[in-house]
Amino acid sequence: MTSIAIRGSGIAASGCAHILTGAGLRVAIEDIRRPSVPTIMLSDPALGLIRGVFDRPDLFADRPRVKRRVVAWGGPPVVVPHGAALASEEEVQAALPVVGQSGAGAGDFTIHTAPPLPLGDMRLFGERHAVAARVRLRDPACGDEARIEAVAGGWLYLVPAQAGAGWLLGVGGTIEALLGQSALIAPVVDAVGAVSTPFLAAPRLHLPLQDADWLACGTVALGFDPICGDGTAQSVREAILAAAVVTAIAEGGDRAALLGHYQSMLIAAMRRHLLLCAQFYANGGKGDWWCAQHEALMEGHRHCTALLARMPEPRFLLDGFRLAPRQAAA
């Protein structure tokens, strides 16, 4: 196996291509794009992962920074330190180096970072959607802080943009309805832009995540609830693991064992995410909407636990961008 086809674009596709090219494999990228996200908050851990993959220690160093979060979640507001850079998805895509050949082509193996996948279905853990709107910030102090607030009908997340503007994410209802219940965010914003069409905000997992000649990577494999702020970092982690699995297969490793390891690691990541989200939704509110979302998350956690119980114990450990047998690594 010497040639790899990558379908898609974004951080997962770019990361896979960069690592695999560095490992000496031929890569062809079929650039498949979806509507871009207006702003991404790149946490310092996510920035560290991206800079490490692309060997760019100064990447996004010139972007506006978020220095703190103000959180009102089932209690009075709390201010906590936070470090993150702000960029649009288009800016992120433009900053990442492009490697490999362009255009669709048959490879010995395919990494899918965009739909459709060859087989399987996506399972949702909840029934919630989000909408986003551009807003004007009334308070200049909001220019370097993020605000998150739980209200009776859902939750709101405000991040700054540029020139006194910001982006407001609403989950569980319309922006207007959620702002009508808000004490933390409503006083500091004025809506000035059109509201986006609703998009999925519930965690989701596609199964299967792999077959003999392909695997899924990035948000097409699994999607996180935006409440965690870890979606970008997760896509980078998936790219590192996917590239390590493909490299090991190309070097003669046990294909079935390596692909099974990849699937179990992603299911385990989703299981951890579901439990983390469940803690937020248990404390955000007491109404029917909050209770239903919490129960869906816990049901998903039980589902992933049952899946992992039927899978072998992990046989490999990541060592940089490579996989090592667990016994040897120990």
Rank of each mutant, 00 (worst) to 15 (best):
V53A: 12
M298G: 01
I240D: 03
P97A: 08
L274R: 08
L47D: 04
P314I: 08
E176A: 15
V99K: 08
A13R: 01
A292N: 12
A186S: 10
L297Q: 06
R33N: 07
E176F: 11
L275H: 08
A191Y: 00
A306Q: 14
V245I: 02
Q101V: 07
L168M: 09
A141V: 10
V195K: 13
S235R: 11
A268D: 15
R310W: 04
G48W: 03
S36W: 03
E90G: 10
L86A: 04
D254G: 03
R7C: 07
E295N: 06
P77I: 13
L318G: 05
P97G: 06
P187V: 03
L179G: 02
G153I: 00
A87G: 02
H261D: 10
A233S: 14
A13G: 06
P57D: 06
M311I: 04
E145K: 07
G229K: 04
P160W: 06
A165R: 14
A104I: 02
A268E: 14
G126R: 07
S88Q: 07
V236L: 15
A186G: 05
A212L: 11
G105L: 11
P312Y: 14
A248V: 00
R147C: 12
E251Q: 13
H129C: 11
G166A: 09
L276F: 12
L317G: 01
Q210H: 12
L241N: 04
V192A: 08
